[in-house]
Amino acid sequence: MPSTPERPRRVVVQDHGPLLVEGPVTIVAEDGTTRTSDRFMVAVCTCRRSRSYPWCDTSHRVHSRARRTAGNPPGADDAAPADGETP
């Protein structure tokens, strides 16, 4: 299902975070099911921890905080805290 936008879609890759895709978007899963969002920017989950997969619900942040409190020093986990967020 090719699209012909007037300009290319912008995809922002974040370290240890979701893919940010300019919307609207349609995502086709491995099993052929589709999910559509008409938002102007969509966060697509890359860690597969999201309860609303394929959309990111920031579950990756909770997982990284839990690892740090289990004895790992900051920076040893797979995600850094967001600006203004305390580890």
Rank of each mutant, 00 (worst) to 15 (best):
M1D: 09
M1F: 11
M1Y: 04
P2Q: 06
S3M: 12
S3D: 07
T4Q: 09
T4S: 10
T4K: 13
T4D: 05
P5W: 04
E6Y: 04
E6H: 03
R7Y: 12
P8G: 05
R9W: 09
R10E: 13
V11T: 02
V11A: 07
V13F: 05
V13L: 12
Q14G: 06
Q14W: 07
Q14P: 00
Q14M: 14
D15I: 01
D15M: 05
D15Y: 00
H16A: 15
G17D: 14
G17A: 14
P18N: 09
P18S: 11
L19H: 00
V21G: 00
V21Y: 00
V21C: 06
E22R: 06
E22K: 03
G23S: 01
G23W: 00
P24T: 06
V25F: 10
V25N: 09
T26N: 06
T26K: 14
T26L: 09
T26S: 12
I27V: 14
I27R: 08
V28L: 14
V28K: 10
V28A: 10
A29G: 05
A29L: 15
E30G: 11
E30Q: 10
E30K: 09
E30D: 15
E30H: 07
E30Y: 06
D31I: 08
T33P: 00
T34Q: 13
R35Q: 14
R35W: 09
T36W: 03
D38V: 08
D38Y: 02
D38L: 10
R39H: 03
R39P: 04
F40R: 00
V42R: 04
V42F: 08
V42L: 12
V42A: 08
A43L: 11
A43Q: 07
C45P: 02
C45W: 08
T46M: 13
C47Y: 14
C47A: 11
C47I: 13
C47M: 12
R48H: 12
R48I: 06
R48D: 11
R49F: 13
R51K: 04
R51Q: 07
S52E: 11
S52D: 08
S52L: 14
S52R: 04
Y53M: 08
Y53L: 13
Y53F: 15
P54D: 12
W55M: 03
W55G: 00
C56T: 00
C56P: 00
T58W: 15
T58Q: 11
S59V: 03
H60L: 14
R61W: 10
R61Y: 02
V62C: 05
V62D: 01
V62Y: 01
H63R: 01
H63W: 09
H63Y: 04
H63D: 04
S64C: 07
S64F: 13
R65A: 13
R65N: 07
A66I: 12
A66W: 08
A66M: 15
R67V: 15
R67N: 09
R67F: 15
N72L: 15
P74L: 08
P74C: 06
G75I: 09
G75H: 03
A76M: 05
D77T: 13
D77Y: 05
D78K: 02
A79F: 10
A79N: 01
A79T: 03
A80N: 01
A80T: 00
P81V: 12
P81A: 12
A82E: 02
A82N: 01
D83Q: 05
D83C: 07
G84H: 09
E85P: 00
T86Y: 09
P87W: 15
P87V: 13
P87Y: 15
